[in-house]
Amino acid sequence: MRIPCPHCGERAAEEFSYLGDATVTRPAPDAGIDAFVDYAYRRDNPAGALAEYWYHGGGCRSWLVVTRDTRDHRILGAVDAQARGAMEAQR
């Protein structure tokens, strides 16, 4: 699998570390134990495009949001995680 780093270009997946689903939001500290259990353990397993966090430790050392098709592992795109956060904050 090859990941298109927006800073370094297309690279082998071995240069990256996978963190997980980029669509899940950590609950507030006062949300209660059930909210935290849902966050930590009860996850969907969608078939299709999924935004995921990946760290490019073998290159620019940036966090990326990679969109990957979970059915065939095809990479659909990648953006810098900080840039994505800034774009979402403007909405």
Rank of each mutant, 00 (worst) to 15 (best):
A31C: 12
F16H: 14
E88S: 01
D44M: 12
E52V: 12
A86G: 03
T70S: 14
R84N: 05
C8T: 05
R61G: 06
A86P: 04
Y53M: 13
D72Q: 08
Q82P: 04
D30I: 02
V79F: 04
R26G: 06
Q90P: 01
L76D: 00
G57N: 11
A47Q: 15
P27D: 05
A47E: 15
R43F: 04
A51Y: 15
R71Q: 11
A81V: 03
P27L: 04
S17G: 12
W54N: 12
R61N: 07
G77L: 03
A28M: 07
R2W: 09
T70P: 08
G57M: 01
V24S: 14
A89W: 09
C5N: 05
E10Q: 10
G57D: 09
A31G: 06
M87A: 15
A35D: 01
Q82C: 10
S62K: 14
G48R: 13
H7Y: 13
R61E: 07
L19Y: 09
D38V: 00
Y55T: 07
A40C: 10
T70L: 03
M1G: 06
T23Q: 13
Y53A: 10
T25W: 09
G85P: 02
R42Q: 15
A28F: 09
Q82R: 14
A83N: 09
R42N: 13
G48P: 13
G48Q: 07
G59A: 12
S17K: 13
M1P: 13
P6T: 00
C5G: 08
M1R: 08
A40Y: 04
T25Y: 09
V24R: 15
Y41G: 02
A89S: 04
V37P: 02
L76K: 08
A78T: 01
V79Q: 03
Q82E: 07
A40S: 12
C60W: 01
E52F: 02
A49D: 14
F16G: 12
A81I: 04
R74M: 02
C8D: 11
P46N: 12
N45E: 15
I33A: 02
A86I: 02
A31Y: 11
G57S: 01
S17W: 14
V24Q: 15
D30E: 15
G85M: 05
A47L: 14
G85K: 10
D69V: 06
L64G: 11
Q90K: 02
A31T: 03
D69A: 05
G32P: 00
R61K: 14
S17M: 11
P29T: 07
R2K: 11
E15M: 06
Y53N: 14
D44I: 10
T70R: 13
V65Q: 10
G9I: 07
N45F: 01
R74Y: 00
R71K: 13
Y18L: 08
L19A: 15
G48Y: 02
G20N: 04
E14H: 10
A31L: 06
A83Q: 10
H73N: 07
A47N: 14
M87D: 12
C8G: 11
V24F: 01
Y39W: 07
G9P: 08
S17D: 10
E88Y: 08
G85W: 03
A51C: 13
M1L: 07
E52L: 12
G9V: 05
A35R: 06
